[in-house]
Design a protein around this nucleic acid. Sequence first.
DNA 1: GATGAATGAGTGTTCATTCAT
DNA 2: GATGAATGAACACTCATTCAT
Lengths: 202, 202, 202, 202
Amino acid sequence: MSDGERKIPRQKRAAETVEIILEAAAQLLERSGLDGFTTNAVAERAGISIGTLYRYFPNKRVLMHALAERESDLHGAEMQRLLREGGAGLAPDRALVRAFVGAFQGRARARRIAMGIWFETTPAEALASRFDAVTQTLNQTQGTLEPISAFVLTRAMHGALRSAVLEGVDFLHDRAFEDELVSLSRAYLAQVRSRAAAQVSP
Amino acid sequence: MSDGERKIPRQKRAAETVEIILEAAAQLLERSGLDGFTTNAVAERAGISIGTLYRYFPNKRVLMHALAERESDLHGAEMQRLLREGGAGLAPDRALVRAFVGAFQGRARARRIAMGIWFETTPAEALASRFDAVTQTLNQTQGTLEPISAFVLTRAMHGALRSAVLEGVDFLHDRAFEDELVSLSRAYLAQVRSRAAAQVSP
Amino acid sequence: MSDGERKIPRQKRAAETVEIILEAAAQLLERSGLDGFTTNAVAERAGISIGTLYRYFPNKRVLMHALAERESDLHGAEMQRLLREGGAGLAPDRALVRAFVGAFQGRARARRIAMGIWFETTPAEALASRFDAVTQTLNQTQGTLEPISAFVLTRAMHGALRSAVLEGVDFLHDRAFEDELVSLSRAYLAQVRSRAAAQVSP
Amino acid sequence: MSDGERKIPRQKRAAETVEIILEAAAQLLERSGLDGFTTNAVAERAGISIGTLYRYFPNKRVLMHALAERESDLHGAEMQRLLREGGAGLAPDRALVRAFVGAFQGRARARRIAMGIWFETTPAEALASRFDAVTQTLNQTQGTLEPISAFVLTRAMHGALRSAVLEGVDFLHDRAFEDELVSLSRAYLAQVRSRAAAQVSP
DNA sequence: GATGAATGAGTGTTCATTCAT
DNA sequence: GATGAATGAACACTCATTCAT
């Protein structure tokens, strides 16, 4: 009756279970869409009982939010890694573009739906925080930017990439596309830096 | 008093009913979110019977799609109008920015959710067509752009604006924000035009 | 404005409309089964408005009953005709068999379903009256039979034929089958007539 | 106290639940007709939740079919029992008649409606198989019959009894009626056996 | 007398959630 | 701590029926 060795990995076990559930949920979303995405189906695919699922997620909404967080495009952690790893030997702006592209890869359908859930689930104020890591990197490498400028740059690039993914363009991984995004970034930053450029026509 | 004129009012009536239903749906989405968005609730708010709703929309999915289309950010027609009206006396790029801003006004929550539905509902290929009008205007005013350049510019600006709306930033209607977007557009276009700018660091 | 000639065929017109409706209903039953059998669908197929249908049948139940009556296997009138026409030059019992077979032809599915409706719709006592014409003919040709004997003979033959139709046997129109039924009838009648045959083992 | 014995009660439990549901369905059919026969009503009368009902029957159609099977006149098992038990000390043909009569007892309305459902639900080919047990018994006791003869005899007797039940005749359980049916059977079999009887008039 | 748009009660069915084992 | 049978509120959708035109 000694279950001594069962007690140690308690937390690790729990984390693994959560991971299994979320992975099952993501797969289900990818394959069957939002219609097949029921708590019972998730539990079954995860190979656990529905009761166990409810031990880890108090209700479906929480599960969906966790999934959206995970599948949504820019996790702080993942993004940080990409910025760090990608930066080795690359110009900072190109590293940024690559990081963005990397953040958008794989599981398109699940991502698309997760994005929808995310919009429904996440309060407006929280949406901004997803760009914090990028803005920090920008500020460190490009000199401190006006908040509005940082906002425009990050969201513009994010938007171009997001659209490329969601519209399923074929040039997503082309060098030409990457170049174009780097161009956008550089042109804008150059403009911003020379504040003389602030005279815009009516 | 011949009934020749009966058919026209009849169609007008139908169009009005559709409009009433969609308006009710949008209001419901805005106030109660996706949870309160049931066909019965929509009918009730629209002041019609559920049966009548089903005369105009064969199932909920179609209703949702129509709503997403309507509430989604860029209707061809609405956008055209903004481009035309906004263009009077403005530089084309600024007119474009204003058109985008205009397209994003009001009913933030409904819009947010509708966008989610849109992503789930709309095939990837169809997403691109929403930018056709804008791309046309760009090509007419800026000289013909490479497809990738046009793509990057339209989606970048769209992305910046979309984020501004969804994140609920307070500078959405500030002149400074508009200027920043115009800057982005001009800087990028200038860069694109001088194809010497194609040398980008590794 | 003289609709003088419209008034004359009033009743004939009505009867025709009823006929058109019932025919449409039967066709619908045959092709789409009970699921597709809605009052609106019947009206559409009949080429009249739903309102008009309700002028002739106060509700669906009545329509169904009328249809069941019509499509059910043994109309008095139709049966009479078959007995009369079929009888020319045939032995009475064979004429009877042929009349039964004739009564079972065509529109199997509609008939099958109509039979179901009939059972639900018709009070038990009324079921018997469908055999009155046959029993009369039997009594006229075979000498008066005991009520129970007449009952057994008519229902037995009816049952054998009904099953042949409903089970879709391939020998339905074979001479061998007809002979077998005639045999049944003759053997039984012979037995009945010689009331000595009434000694049956325990 | 090992849980080895848990699985058997579980299956027994399930079988009991199915039985409870079908019984409730039959009662409902008997009392309220097809109109009152809704899945929710069945569940309520069965004393279970609607969700549980759907655990055992995936949709209403399946439930109806199962009920029709059960309430329909000749279950293989029930019939077999009647043939075996009834046979003790009785002539085979009389045992057969008694078996038929027994198979038709009780719950007339439910039976009538179930029969309708059966006709709509059951493919023609499947209808025949219900007579297999009877045909076997016939072949064992009467010498092998021609298929058509076996068909005619079984369906004729079945038809006479079915009508007696559905028409609610008062002589259903009279000895005279039973005798008449036995007469029918004997007369026909005698005729069949003496193949000389094959000469039938035109 | 015909029309058919509108009605809304009612139906089958799903699925998030609970809790006894 | 896991299980999964049971629950039942809630939903999408149908269709018999009405009645203003």
